[in-house]
């Protein structure tokens, strides 16, 4: 089961890429765990997660071909 990942803002600096695919992830909690293992700097970083463009706040199931976006806050003006 493949899913699509998109990163924005300073998340891209941490992951080193803005779009990639992952497999074997069943929900957003598992995704966060996996991402933090791959990219330890994410632990200390704030970001919101959107599953298929909807911002989620609680653990959410992930299905095949879903697109998960990681959006950090910006403060620049």
């Amino acid at each position: 089961m493949e899913i699509n990942l998109l990163a924005f803002g300073q998340i891209v600096e941490i992951t080193g890429k803005s779009a990639w695919k992952m497999a074997g992830i069943k929900d957003t909690n598992a995704l966060i765990q996996d991402l933090e293992k791959q990219f330890p700097h994410l632990v200390k970083t704030n970001y919101s997660i959107a599953v298929n463009k909807k911002v989620i706040q609680e653990n959410t199931a992930i299905n095949e071909n879903d697109t998960i976006a990681l959006l950090p806050p910006f403060s620049g003006g």
Binding site: K44, T45, Y47, L71, P72
Partner: peptide, 11 residues
């Protein structure tokens, strides 16, 4: 609703 918590220093 988008960012309930302010970012920590690193973000």
């Amino acid at each position: 609703d988008l960012f309930p918590k302010p970012p920590n220093l690193d973000s």
